[in-house]
């Protein structure tokens, strides 16, 4: 009962958000009748998502075959949620998809292009003027946060590589790795030639 209550709350909240994005709602209608299974491997979370025109239904139980299944760790799914390029995160980083991958791709595309009107939702509570100002403050904060993060990454890298010389420069590491790859390939080629030579010697000895 408790899990069902949580699912109901989650479903209601997601649908409220989706209703601010008419394009996404219309796109979801195209997936009506499909069922997507989500399985989070390192948490007891397993549910089914049923899209329809105007939102989604979430179920804990579905007694028939599903269109596609998504399986991954909590980290994989959270990266997917936070990623700017969701296609890369979904298909390249740990989320395993089985079943009809074409329909799974459609769902991914819809989720990826969803644009929730947070300002509109805030405006319903606070009024237009305050919501607009809050959105400006939030956007400015976000921009500043991105600049700070980028600057911090550069400074830490420079400190570790140049000041205390704990780490080599990226180009140096990349060169070293490329040298190892070349050496590895040369070793494999040499091994193959030796095998060929040995085979020829054995053949000559038999005749």
């Amino acid at each position: 009962m408790l899990q069902t209550a949580v699912i109901l709350l989650l479903e209601g909240s997601i649908n409220k958000l989706l209703q601010t994005d008419e394009v996404t709602c219309q796109a979801l209608a195209g997936l009506n009748g499909r069922v997507f299974e989500f399985n989070i491997s390192d948490a007891p979370v397993h549910f089914y998502l049923l899209p329809y025109g105007g939102g989604i239904a979430l179920q804990q139980q579905f007694d028939a075959s599903v269109t596609a299944s998504f399986k991954g760790s909590l980290k994989d799914f959270s990266q997917l949620l936070l990623a700017e390029d969701k296609a890369t995160e979904l298909f390249g980083n740990g989320v395993l998809i089985s079943g009809d991958t074409h329909q799974a791709g459609k769902l991914q595309k819809i989720i990826g292009s969803a644009q929730i009107d947070w300002q509109g939702l805030t405006a319903a509570v606070t009024g237009d003027l305050l919501a607009h100002q809050l959105a400006n403050v939030f956007n400015a904060g976000n921009r500043q946060l991105a600049i700070t993060r980028h600057s911090l990454e550069l400074n830490i890298g420079e400190y570790l590589q140049e000041e205390i010389q704990l780490l080599p420069a990226r180009a140096e590491v990349q060169g070293f790795v490329a040298d190892i790859d070349d050496l590895n390939q040369d070793g494999e080629r040499l091994s193959a030639r030796l095998d060929l030579l040995q085979a020829k010697i054995q053949k000559a000895a038999q005749t």
């Binding site: 009962m1 109901l8 007694d63």
Partner: peptide, 14 residues
């Protein structure tokens, strides 16, 4: 919640 549980156990599909 009662109704949601009923739906989930119905086995309804497309």
């Amino acid at each position: 919640i009662w109704k949601k549980l009923t739906i989930e156990q119905s086995g309804a599909r497309a």
